[in-house]
Design a protein around this nucleic acid. Structure first.
Length: 785
DNA sequence: TTAGGGTTAG
């Protein structure tokens, strides 16, 4: 047969198809050119397809450029090739190129390929809407393949609702589409929904389950800690014949270890017989998160000794993220190994290490790791930002968030959750509102972490109504969501609302946690509800079988103490089944301060100096109590200790936002550009307040100086400066909101009541403990704080 | 199929 006969075309095709290496492929191509078949589209397409499998997209691109009139098939091969070879820009570029060709129209293959390219992290959510629109216009909006790609794309951008809408519209669903939905929901933390969709799939007999479906749902079941359900799924897998499938066995192993059933996990690991790297990784991680660190390290060493190479997952599973206490040494050791082996350059590994360091309070080590990592993934940024917020370094968190924005890294729900927490801690309402806008525009509202963090942010920034509205709108709530709302009410002194919500929560079948009881108890404390607090405490132990933690005991002391029942509080402490810790004695000391009980204060302080000698707050409290009783020599000697031991007192400061800009004041400071106006406003107010019968309260001032001098010092407490500033810079009649880092002092509290009456303003003060809403000379706390 | 980043009390 001559090489130029029509049959030779098939010969080239089989030559191309059979090429096992790039060089064989090149030789085949040379033959094609030699015989003048280079413009035969079918040859070129086959070649391009092969090239994309061999990861040589530059060669494929050159080939494509040499074709004068490419057809749709060739376009599709290239678009998919670029997408599969991590060249999403080229893929999308070619798609736009294709749309310009009037003789061609994209089909469902084109859309499914280009949509999968658009899921790359270098794009944002806007591209999804654009491509979705194109697909609908061309009549592929409800196509099964395009649908699966779209669902996947929306999940990648955390647009859960859009993914769901696309899924719901497609009547004809295949296994891949169902599986995409199950794992997409899982990746977006919608664990219940993921399990529900799996259930629908099982009931929908028309679509066959495969082993991927079973393996995909197991992590969601593990998150929900539904041990029984997992076992049922295991039985289902057995019935369908997936019991010896390594995918499924590994998934089950991981499921059981996450549910704390480490023995079952070990037995499954033995069943696997010849475990691959992935199942070993799952086992290592299982050992680690069940605290069996030694077994974990042993299996890791066995892996290293065998010829099997470890990968980043091995290391990440080995890092004891969940049991970090006391594991600094192991962490440094793993870190050392990662440096030596070069695996540190993997962003998953450095992210995991960043997290552990920050949980171990080694925030500088975490930051160094973050700074040194060459390739920062979204997760790396999130880990560092979360590390800061969890350690109370809120300003660092926000500044890193801003740096992330300038680095063009697009925040996801995880980022947003951490930033909202930082806003809540700081009381940064403007930034919080801005983030809320971002949440709306990106459709993150359905994310349960995000909406819970929003509720907490609004509650802590003083906007309890907004928090409540968001709470009421949430279709699904976790125990944490309820806790955030209960404690929000508590902070604002709305004790009854908090208790109503608490009982609603119990009736709705949500399991309360230790934090739930604590939130309810603090709500009682802020509202002076002694009887109710006591009932909740008893019910926690007897009806719900909770062993109280030191925090719960401390809260009970707080409730009794604030209500003035100091003797009862002391009796309660003496009757405790465990040694009372600093929190318990601290609560008693705080109560002694409110009710001016010097004798009991001394008892509490002595315990505290012993238990927590570095904490300067207790010295300050005791000294204040002595001053209040005019026992100045005693007060002075307490302060002497503070000075001698070089313990620093936290300076008081107050923040006020005007037109979105924060202004911070410290006691007596004259640094503000409008300082003169502020002080003269304060003078004017003082005059009016004296006329109205206000007398400066000095007893809680720290210093035992002359009365007159003391009066001067109290006058310029930071909250007063902030209020005066608020009065001169905001519209008459508008609300003034300030945030103080310490507990508000008695003098400022009384003065604020007067100011609210004189000026006709509502003044909202957030102090270290709670909110005070001042209106018409009265405070919402009922002078109870 | 494994692993890395998130919310609630004080």
């Amino acid at each position: 047969m001559s090489i130029n006969t029509p049959g030779s075309r098939n010969l080239f095709q089989s030559l191309l198809k059979g090429a096992k290496t790039l060089s064989q492929l090149t030789q085949a191509h040379a033959q094609v050119i030699l015989h003048g078949f280079q413009n035969d589209l079918s040859n070129v397409t086959k070649l391009a397809h092969k090239l994309s499998e061999f990861n040589d997209m530059n060669y494929a691109r050159d080939l494509f450029s040499s074709v004068p009139k490419p057809d749709l098939f060739l376009f599709n091969v290239l678009i998919r090739g670029f997408s599969n070879n991590d060249m999403p820009h080229s893929s999308i570029f070619l798609y736009t190129h294709l749309r310009k060709r009037t003789y061609l129209k994209p089909d469902n293959f084109t859309y499914s390929f280009v949509i999968s390219a658009a899921g790359s992290t270098c794009f944002d959510h806007r591209i999804s809407a654009l491509l979705h629109g194109h697909a609908i216009v061309d009549g592929y909006g409800d196509d099964m393949f395009v649908g699966a790609a779209l669902v996947d794309l929306y999940f990648k951008f955390s647009c859960v609702e859009f993914a769901r809408k696309v899924f719901d519209r497609i009547c004809d669903r295949d296994t891949v589409l169902w599986n995409t939905m199950i794992s997409g929901l899982l990746k977006n933390s919608c664990f219940e929904d993921s399990v529900l969709v799996f259930g629908d799939m099982v009931r929908n007999g028309g679509t066959r389950l495969n082993s991927t479906s079973v393996a995909a749902v197991l992590p969601a079941v593990a998150e929900l800690q539904e041990l029984r359900l997992g076992m049922e799924i295991q039985c289902l897998g057995l019935k369908l014949g997936f019991h010896d499938h390594v995918y499924v066995l590994t998934g089950l192993l991981s499921f059981y270890s996450k549910c704390g059933e480490i023995e079952r996990a070990k037995s499954l690991f033995r069943d696997i017989g010849r475990p691959d790297l992935i199942s070993c990784n799952a086992m290592i991680s299982g050992y680690t998160c069940n605290g069996e660190i030694e077994s974990s390290v042993r299996l890791f060493q066995e892996l290293l000794a065998s010829r099997e190479r470890v990968n980043s997952s091995t290391i990440v599973g080995l890092i004891p993220v969940f049991y970090p206490l006391g594991h600094l040494q192991l962490t440094t050791c793993i870190h050392g190994f990662c440096l030596k082996s070069g695996i540190i350059s993997n962003s998953s590994v450095s992210t995991a290490l960043t997290t552990v360091y920050s949980r171990l309070d080694e925030i500088e080590a975490a930051r160094q790791l973050f700074d040194e990592s060459s390739e920062k993934s979204l997760a790396s940024w999130n880990a560092m930002i979360a590390g800061y917020t969890q350690n109370g370094l809120t300003e660092e968190a926000i500044s890193l968030f801003q740096k992330m924005q300038t680095s063009k890294v697009i925040p996801n729900p995880v980022t947003v959750t951490s930033i909202l927490s930082a806003c809540a801690q700081l009381g940064a309402l403007s930034l919080g509102k801005w983030v809320h806008g971002l949440v709306k525009s990106r459709n993150f509202e359905s994310n349960i972490y995000v909406s819970t963090a929003l509720i907490d942010m609004y509650a802590k920034c003083g906007n309890i109504v907004e928090a409540q509205e968001l709470f009421d709108l949430m279709p699904q709530k976790t125990e944490v969501t309820w806790n955030a709302m209960i404690s929000g009410y508590g902070l604002h002194g709305h004790g009854q609302e908090a208790l109503k919500l608490f009982s609603e929560m119990l009736h709705s079948g949500i399991q309360p946690s230790g934090v739930t009881f604590l939130s309810a108890l603090y709500a009682c404390s802020h509202a002076g509800l002694v009887k109710e607090g006591n009932e909740i405490f008893q019910s926690m132990i007897h009806d719900h079988g909770f062993e109280p933690l030191p925090e719960h005991y401390a809260c009970m002391v707080d409730i009794l103490g604030r209500a003035g029942q100091l003797e009862k509080a002391l009796k309660f402490i003496k009757g405790l089944p465990v040694d009372p810790g600093p929190a318990v004695w601290g609560a008693l000391l705080g109560a002694c301060m409110i009710h001016k009980d010097t004798n009991l204060a001394r008892v509490a302080s002595e315990k505290l100096f012993e238990l927590d000698p570095e904490n300067v707050g207790y010295y300050v409290l005791l000294s204040n109590i002595y001053s209040a009783e005019r026992r100045y020599p005693q007060a002075a000697s307490v302060r002497q200790v503070v000075r001698k031991r070089k313990l620093a007192k936290t300076p008081g400061c107050t923040l006020i936002e005007v037109d979105g800009a924060p202004h911070v004041f410290t006691s007596g400071d004259r640094l503000h550009p409008q300082s003169t106006a502020i002080y003269s406003k304060l003078e004017e107010l003082n005059g009016k307040m004296r006329e109205a019968g206000f007398q400066t309260e000095t007893i809680t001032a720290l210093h035992d100086v002359e009365e007159e001098e003391k009066e001067l010092m109290v006058k310029v407490h930071s909250e007063k400066l902030a209020i005066a500033f608020g009065l001169i810079t905001t519209e008459p009649g508008s609300e003034i909101r300030i945030i103080k880092n310490l507990r508000v002092c008695l003098d400022c509290h009384t003065a604020t009541k007067f100011i609210s009456k004189i000026t006709g303003r509502i003044i909202v003060v957030r102090d270290a403990n709670r909110f005070h809403h001042f209106k018409d000379g009265v405070c919402s706390c009922g002078d109870y704080w």
